[in-house]
Design a protein around this nucleic acid. Structure first.
Lengths: 305, 305
DNA sequence: GACCTTCCATGCCTGAAACGTATGGACGCG
DNA sequence: CGCGTCCATACGTTTCAGGCATGGAAGGTC
């Protein structure tokens, strides 16, 4: 009689991929676990939802008819939670700004101070998320606005690009390249194990890793991590190198770490983003503050993608 | 990010009763467990849903705003599951008839055989439920039609009273009343421990127990049970007596059990019931079969309550 | 036709969470 | 000022989702 929305998400994912294996990868669960959850659900509703015939999976009539309800419930709950979280923040006079690592760098701090002096009653609450988490945080109502690092999934969001930052590479202080060069080329990093994360989609990881490289080769992959601190720990320990932003080179100085500018890869584009739908006046005011500051400093002002 | 519809039902129940204790009773969970679940939910959505101020519970603004979504999701899922179950039964050419204990007695069996000969391709599947479970089974799509023992919660259902049955009492074969009387009065049972169940609502239990008694007294309560078999085991063991129907006196004969007619209490009314909304032609045909047979034998034909 | 790959299901173990019982603590009432 | 009511917390138990290892069936290849 009862279901968890998690199970409904599983069901929708399998229905969309028509594959347990691929759905399990997308959902970050093991394939056996997913199989069992679907079996449980089928048992609960008293009908098979999928026909598994060897290497092909397809929906049964029951599976087709239940699917819209599953999507509806998942979306309904998502939206309801988002609204409650947003309303609660508004009630507490909070403006929650999501970001990753250094966010928009100096622009973020300038925006925060400018906004605070213009709206003295409001507390601006910076909220740090794991790699690729800022955009989801907006969709889940965990932040009111965010500095999103592109590329990112912007569905359900408005976004304006407000800054770009050159990319740098972090090396262990003892790394040969640190001594040899003031700036490096992406091809200098050909054989270096590069950090990656499973928190962000593949597209995001590939963009950061410059995959494929200009010569068509693939990067060598190093350890996985969820956020800046973990990443830099690995780098300082000499297990890998990582790409980051110019701001990160300034913010995360560390005796065992050396930053070098990478000259021949495209810079990071940073957008200020906020969710679709009714947004409070504070969000609009913050976005305007950011875009105003960005324009003053010659940053591009771009329409949403 | 995820919720179980169970938790949403808990939330709705607390919101309706504005009391954790009473909601817990209605939900058949302990009050501490309910408190924990609500806390979890509040933590999940990031806002208090209730204000607990000593002996009074009331909704917060967040609680008010989340409530419609919670109701919507619970109902949505209920309905979706009901439709899938019903469609699956139709696909398998099944007509599932819910009942409790002996259902409508001889009328039920006559209806079944008549229906089966008129619809040879259809399998009629009798489905036995625990006390008070027939009506819920209809709402949950676990049966297509049912013989419902009144009083019952008929919300969401159509119902027609098709039979009445005199009530009898079951006694251990060794019970003094069994030897002394051919029929008994409800007041003869004043001091006998009477069976009861927590599967059915209080109103149902009270009606069966004739509570209050004609003289205003309350029954003496004996052990709890979920269905006929459990009930009669207790009675045969001499732990209690129980009220039942005339059919039960005929169906559940047992060397250690004696049945006696109770002369001075109102008979059981039995309705054939089916869910609101689109129903297949089979359901309608079955209902017509039953009402036709009931009319042939002089049973009342009554509109829904 | 035998082999191999692919993909879902099953068995087994582990960790988290939901439940119940017992108990604490705050408020209202007599 | 005790007493009852009602929600929260503590603790032990059971249930269940998750991962890993493995089985078994379907389809493709040589």
């Amino acid at each position: 009689m009862d279901v968890d929305t998690r199970v409904l998400r599983y069901y929708v994912a399998v229905a969309e991929h028509l594959s347990f294996t691929r759905a399990a990868q997308e959902l970050f669960v093991s394939q056996p676990s997913l199989s069992r959850q679907i079996q449980r659900l089928e048992n609960e509703v008293g009908a098979a939802l999928f026909v598994r015939t060897g290497r092909r999976v397809r929906l049964t009539a029951a599976g087709e008819s239940l699917l819209p309800a599953a999507r509806r419930i998942v979306d309904d709950w998502r939206q309801a939670v988002r609204e409650v979280r947003t309303a609660e923040a508004a009630r507490r006079k909070l403006l929650r700004i999501g970001f990753v690592a250094t966010g928009a760098g100096p622009l973020g701090r300038r925006a925060r101070t400018a906004f605070t002096s213009a709206h003295p009653g409001i507390t601006v609450e910076p909220k740090r998320f794991d790699w690729g988490g800022e955009a989801d945080a907006l969709r889940q109502g965990l932040a009111d606005a965010a500095f999103v690092w592109l590329p990112a999934d912007l569905s359900g969001l408005h976004a304006r690009v407000v800054a770009t930052e050159a990319r740098w590479v972090a090396l262990a202080a003892t790394h040969p390249l640190a001594a040899a060069r003031d700036t490096v080329s992406i091809m200098d990093l050909r054989d270096e194990p590069l950090m990656w994360t499973r928190k962000a989609p593949q597209e995001w990881v590939d963009w950061w890793a410059v995959n494929p490289r200009p010569d068509g080769s693939a990067p060598r992959w190093g350890p996985e991590n969820d956020n800046v601190e973990e990443m830099l720990e690995h780098v300082a320990a000499g297990n890998a190198v990582c790409l980051g932003t110019e701001s990160m080179a300034g913010y995360y100085t560390h005796p065992e770490l050396t930053w070098r500018r990478v000259t021949d890869i495209e810079p990071l584009r940073i957008a200020v983003a906020w969710p679709h739908g009714r947004t409070g006046p504070l969000v609009r005011a913050f976005v305007d503050t950011v875009t105003g500051l960005a324009a003053d400093h010659g940053e591009p002002r771009v329409s949403p993608a």
